[in-house]
């Protein structure tokens, strides 16, 4: 059942992105930045975690989940270490995504040329 909701929720988040690009005429960079912040705010309001439980990858795959993870990291560390945790914890959960993107992109650039 979660497969169905993953499809629907993931699709809908993408539709929001498409509306930002086509309707509000935002560039892709503006659109993704908006969605990341939206994900962060959604987590701050406590609504993103239930969405993840419900839709699985439909909520964790879109870029909104990046904002969610950043806030999670900050808040978890805030609880553990106090105020300084807000800064030190931000990248805790997103490290995998950023690291793999850097590593794979770098390795790719060593051997592959753009095709145009």
């Amino acid at each position: 059942m979660q497969f169905l909701w993953a499809f629907i929720v993931g699709g809908l988040i993408c539709v929001i992105g498409q509306l930002l690009m086509d309707g509000a005429k935002l560039t892709p960079a503006h659109t993704m930045s908006t969605l990341v912040v939206a994900g962060a705010v959604a987590d701050a309001l406590g609504i993103y975690d239930p969405l993840v439980k419900f839709a699985g990858a439909g909520a964790t795959v879109p870029i909104t989940s990046f904002g969610n993870s950043l806030v999670h990291g900050a808040l978890t560390e805030l609880e553990k270490e106090g105020w300084i945790g807000v800064i030190t914890g931000i990248f805790d959960l997103t490290a995998a995504g950023i690291s793999s993107a850097i590593i794979f992109s770098f390795l790719a650039a060593l051997v592959v040329r753009p095709k145009g």
Binding site: Q18, V61, P62
Partner: peptide
């Protein structure tokens, strides 16, 4: 966007 986005998330799932 809905169908492709949904499919990508399905693959993630």
């Amino acid at each position: 966007a809905f169908f492709v986005g949904g499919t990508v998330c399905l693959i993630g799932q």
